[in-house]
Design a protein around this nucleic acid. Structure first.
Length: 163
DNA sequence: AGTTCGGACCGTT
DNA sequence: AACGGTCCGAACT
C-alpha cells in the first residue's frame, strides 16, 4: 500500500504524519527522520484535507484542547486485539485516565492487562489516540514508547496529576 | 502506609 | 521460547 508522509510543524516540534488512501496511519514525534519521501505521485485529493485536519487536531490536542474532528484513522496495520485496544483508548475523555487493567476489562479480557500495555506501545497514532491516558493500576505513570517526557507533558497539559 | 518480590497472565514476534 | 508501557497478594520496613 502506498503511503505518503508530511511534516507538521507545531510549537512542540515537527511531527510526521503518514497517510494511506484510507486515512491517517501514523503520527510520529519530533526527532525522527524528518525527510519527506518526496511526494512524486499526485497527492490523492482527500489527503490534503486530512492533513489539514490532522494538523489542526494535533495543535489543539497539544494545547490541551479537545479536537473537534479527526481525519479518518487507518488502523489496518494492527491485529484485531490491537485495534480493539486503540478504539478503547479513543473513548477515554481528556483529563481522565484508565489503568491497563481497566482497558483489559473493557475488552472482556480481564487478564490481559499486560497485553494491553503491549498494544498501547504499538499505537501508531499517539496524542490523537490517547495512549498517554493509560496509567498503572497504582496510579503510577506506566511507560511510553515515545519517551516518558512526552507522556508527562501530555498529561500535564490535560491537567492530570500523577502519584 | 509505603516498598519489594515473585509468580501468574496474555498477545506478539 | 522469550519478551513487555502489568497486576496483585504476601512479606517485609
Amino acid at each position: 500500500m502506498k503511503l505518503q508522509s508530511f511534516p507538521i510543524e507545531t510549537e512542540a516540534g515537527v511531527f510526521m504524519a503518514l497517510f494511506s488512501v484510507r486515512g491517517l496511519t501514523s503520527l510520529s514525534f519530533p526527532g525522527g527522520s524528518r525527510r519527506t519521501q518526496d511526494h512524486p505521485a499526485p497527492v490523492p485529493r482527500p489527503m490534503v484535507s486530512w492533513l489539514r485536519q490532522t494538523e489542526r487536531a494535533l495543535k489543539c490536542a497539544l494545547a490541551g484542547g479537545v479536537p473537534e474532528d479527526l481525519p479518518p484513522l487507518d488502523f489496518s496495520s494492527g491485529t484485531e486485539f490491537q485495534k480493539a485496544v486503540w478504539d478503547a483508548l479513543r473513548e477515554i475523555p481528556a483529563g481522565e485516565t484508565r489503568s491497563y487493567a481497566e482497558i483489559a476489562r473493557r475488552l472482556k479480557r480481564p487478564r490481559a492487562a499486560r497485553a494491553v500495555g503491549g498494544a498501547c506501545g504499538a499505537n501508531p497514532i499517539p496524542v490523537l489516540v490517547p495512549c498517554h491516558r493509560v496509567l498503572a493500576a497504582n496510579r503510577g505513570i506506566g511507560g511510553f514508547s515515545g519517551g516518558l517526557e512526552w507522556k508527562r507533558r501530555l498529561l500535564q497539559t490535560e491537567g492530570v496529576a500523577l502519584a
